[in-house]
Design a protein around this nucleic acid. Structure first.
Lengths: 198, 198
DNA sequence: AGGGCTGCTGGACACGAGTCCAGTTTCTAA
DNA sequence: TTAGAAACTGGACTCGTGTCCAGCAGCCCT
């Protein structure tokens, strides 16, 4: 089940981690996922993740200031790591937008526990998490504008961004089922950009 | 500066507070606002609010389980307390929707500190706050549907709800200026419902 | 006025989070 | 091979949070 270590990101928490540090951080994020699946978000602490990763708590704290930071980092790594799909100009703008939004929303779709945890963690009022949110927002914005080119107004793009923020929020707070997001986002994209989703 | 006690809500934290309890809770929410304005959200604790309200910490904790709960309650009380505006069928659906959304978004518009704090507090992963979110979401939904009647599709209403969730989230996280919200929401409503905002 | 009930008090307590640092291991390069 | 640097260790420590409870005060009813 553990993915083969293709290329560990070195830009995670501090500028330029050494190989050794990158490996430690990677062990921690992997352990965080395992911990989430096994005991769930409320029971997860930086200390338990450190133990699972075979690392001292103090070490974990040098990279992650809080459990929210740790979990949010999991999301960021996966999102950033998605290879860009070749954009298909033959599909409608709504379809292209939907694709981007769903790629984003379903980053952690495979494990329900992880999805819920990530969404909650992303909401934290925490300096590091704020930073990650910024990066994520920026990357999403870039992907959206690239997918839509000049075929969408700024307001339309803003609306899509607000909608996906809201969707994630409502998933995190339990008001929206994770499974229901795809259809809803597709419908929103169709409404906002005109035409049908597929 | 303290508002005259018109009618203290008795449905706050537990079913049916006695007059005396309602008074205590009211003192606490008022003190919370004052504390927010004076020292800001990060420095606010249940204990400091209790002290300001002239109440023992343990007492405060019998009504509010966390500072997030306390601050979220401030929002809920103001939102719930808004007297309904008579809906004007001569205005466009977009205009009516905008009005509802702005009433919601600007509940705490008078004090910036309070606005920021409330938005952050509302995101907390906390049983009581979740409950408040539910109530707020429900009430907003009701106001929206009442304002729009059958002139809006369910998807349009969902989109508006997602957008305002997202807007609040982005304000809370600092990605969107509180002042910029009205114009943005108006534009979104116009886009989603057709026509212009006013 | 007096008894009883409801709500408030205040201080002790348990708990978890995050910080800190002196000491040890591991890596690197000469 | 060895010195020095970089990273990790482990355990102690502080701090804030939320809980608990035995006692006290204010209110209501007769």
């Amino acid at each position: 089940m553990s993915s083969s270590p293709v290329q560990l990101p070195t830009t995670a928490t501090r500028r330029h981690l050494s190989d050794r540090q990158a490996k430690t951080v990677h062990k921690l994020t992997e352990a965080a996922v395992a911990e989430l699946i096994e005991v769930g978000y409320p029971a997860l602490t930086v200390r338990t993740v450190a133990k699972r990763a075979g690392v001292a708590p103090a070490t974990a704290y040098t990279y992650f200031g809080s459990k929210e930071h740790l979990v949010a980092e999991v999301f960021w790594r996966r999102f950033e790591g998605q290879e860009p799909k070749p954009l298909n100009p033959h599909r409608s703008p709504a379809a292209r937008a939907t694709e981007v939004l769903l790629d984003f929303a379903l980053v952690v779709a495979d494990e329900t526990e992880v999805a819920a945890a990530v969404t909650v963690a992303m909401l934290a009022d925490d300096a590091e998490v704020r930073e990650l949110r910024s990066r994520i927002g920026l990357l999403l914005h870039r992907r959206l504008t690239e997918a839509l080119g000049d075929e969408a107004t700024p307001v339309a793009i803003s609306t899509l961004e607000l909608a996906i923020s809201g969707a994630l929020l409502q998933v995190g707070t339990g008001h929206l089922a994770y499974d229901a997001m795809p259809a809803l986002l597709a419908a929103v994209a169709a409404l906002v950009l005109g035409g049908t989703a597929s």
